[in-house]
Design a protein around this nucleic acid. Structure first.
Lengths: 335, 335
DNA sequence: CCAAGCATTGAATACGTTTTCAATTTTGTT
DNA sequence: AACAAAATTGAAAACGTATTCAATGCTTGG
């Protein structure tokens, strides 16, 4: 922002018109004669002028910035989501201010403060949750908040999620088909709504099929912890012969350990089902049966609902959308 | 940005001081008595006030926003880079406005225009190149541009790269150790400086070892295209027994095809070397010998040099940094 | 050809802050 | 105690834009 940038006043002078006219030229709805418009177009082009959106936002009260909060990018699901969210918002004339919430940086609270400092028009939180205090803060400022792939039913926030209950149930069906004896579950972070719902759906379907859970361990959505957890599950006389992992990312860890450490074959000795259907799940090395989240649909819904909430504040909130998942059968399960 | 947010004037009134005093309270170097500071602190807290950074940027001429341009996130190298860049910038009090350049969106030019509209203090382009016209435009506005993992030697832009020439040479050494008969190369996008330099370093080292290239195909840095390219390379009577792939992401594609389509063993039938050392390279499924880019170092250098250029504009430009790579021997090569 | 109405234009104001400037208070020195 | 120097304070201007308002120009229908 260092350069002595050219302003609407410069353009006005150069074109021999008022500053208001220049402003109107760059304001879609405004009233301006063709002759004026041409003069300004020419002057603006010669001077390489473009309106300063920060100054504009000061007066319009709209920054056209969306704060995007992400926890981590280790799991390939998130890069995909970010890429698509960002592209969709760009197409709608919004821009993304990116914040990494945890791990490298500290808590969510200071991050949220920084976001609000930029007077964002809206916030998208990808797999990150938020205290009720912060939620109230945003509500007071009438800044819409969209939770992506996580829900906090007690809070009046918008949310787009997969129907995780149904997803857990699909995962169970995929495993039950091979009539397993010992069914295990490798869980993510237990405070996450996604974990809770997927596991519940999974357990309910097992029960309906007359089966119950044999063993369980927690991987907290991280590869390294999932490796540990898999050791826990399999390092015993009666290891599982079917495994539901709460996301693909941990499922890859589990498969790696099962094959290279315990020398078991997938799916002959152990069936595995993941969740998400990230691109790598389709790679021959994994060829993972998984529950697909429909990212494109989730993204387009999240963006369109958020923009509606921003541009038509009267619309009643909160909106909670649940997208149905699909089971993708690949090579880690048998029929 | 919808809410009637509280301003410094409100705080001033509530604390019984001037608006200037409030501003000074939030300006680190400013002169303010302890008594004043306490009154303002209290008032600001009661009203939940925080300065509007957009208004501030209007007058200071500094937005503390860095435009980050990324081509795609399919390759896990980029999420890692983004996560770390974003965290490092956040720690230095800067924030990231994220732009996806191609594929989903169109050209770089309109994207650059949008970035400039936000009066960013600096720009980081991750594996994206830029026309000389755009570079000149940024120079005119005295906005520093940092190229990350790509260089355009003809342009006066800052750049942080790995010493790709050396990296290519290391890759060759790793392959030559097993005395291969037919050495192949799977290339990325041929316009990329990384591709050009890595290949050159590789070929020079082959020559020094008295060997030459047997075959070559292009995967353009995409998994799907790398699959095709690998078919080209191996679908012949004399397939390669050693393969250097320009990045890990394509190397995974190649390994998948080599193993699941051509039923060859790695490294017994074919040695493979990649480049980047993304997290997945260490996973047992791949266990890939690769040339490590030192991302942490590259990121911290890129950020510190960029910030120096922003905050001390007198510093002579451009700065080009080349970080030496390291060979990581794993299971896809033999000694 | 005239008047009413509408479209077009520019001057002036507002947005929320930082910063200069001059006025005032406090501090330090002898 | 007296004075110079330093620190503190508030009023006002500035940043670059959108928008209100009043004034002007143009169109149109009779």
């Amino acid at each position: 922002m260092a350069g002595k940038s050219v302003t609407s006043v410069d353009v006005a002078r150069h074109a021999g018109v008022s500053q208001s006219a220049v402003s109107r030229y760059f304001t879609p709805g405004a009233s301006l004669s063709a002759k004026m418009a041409e003069k300004i177009r020419k002057a603006a082009e010669e001077l390489d002028y473009r309106p300063n959106v920060l100054a504009r936002s000061l007066i319009t009260g709209k920054s056209r910035i969306i704060g995007l909060v992400v926890y981590y990018l280790e799991n390939q699901f998130y890069p995909e989501v970010i890429e698509k969210l960002s592209a969709a918002l760009q197409e709608s004339g919004y821009h993304v201010l990116l914040f990494m919430s945890s791990r490298t940086v500290g808590d969510v609270k200071p991050v949220m403060q920084q976001i609000l400092d930029y007077r964002v028009d809206g916030i998208i939180m990808v797999s990150v949750s938020m205290s009720s205090v912060l939620a109230q803060r945003c509500a007071d400022l009438s800044i819409p908040v969209m939770l992506f792939n996580r829900d906090q039913p007690d809070l009046d926030l918008m949310a787009v999620t997969t129907d995780n209950l149904r997803g857990g149930s699909l995962a169970a069906q995929a495993l039950l088909a091979s009539r397993p004896k010992r069914i295990a579950h490798l869980a993510g972070y237990e405070g996450a709504s996604t974990q809770i719902e997927r596991e519940r759906g999974f357990l309910e379907e097992l029960k309906a099929g007359g089966q119950e859970l044999h063993s369980r361990a927690v991987g907290n959505f991280h590869y390294a912890e999932a490796v540990e957890a898999t050791h826990e599950l399999f390092d015993r006389p009666d290891p599982p012969d079917a495994l539901f992992v709460t996301d693909d990312h941990m499922a890859f860890a589990a498969m790696d350990v099962i094959r290279s450490e315990f020398r078991l074959r997938i799916p002959e000795d152990v069936s595995v089902v993941g969740f998400d259907d990230v691109p790598q799940a389709a790679w021959p090395s994994f060829n993972l049966t998984t529950v697909r989240q429909h990212v494109n649909l989730m993204v387009s819904k999240a963006v369109s609902e958020l923009i509606t909430a921003i541009e038509e504040p009267e619309t009643p909130l909160p909106i909670k959308l649940r997208i149905p998942p699909t089971l993708v059968r690949r090579g880690t399960t048998r029929d």
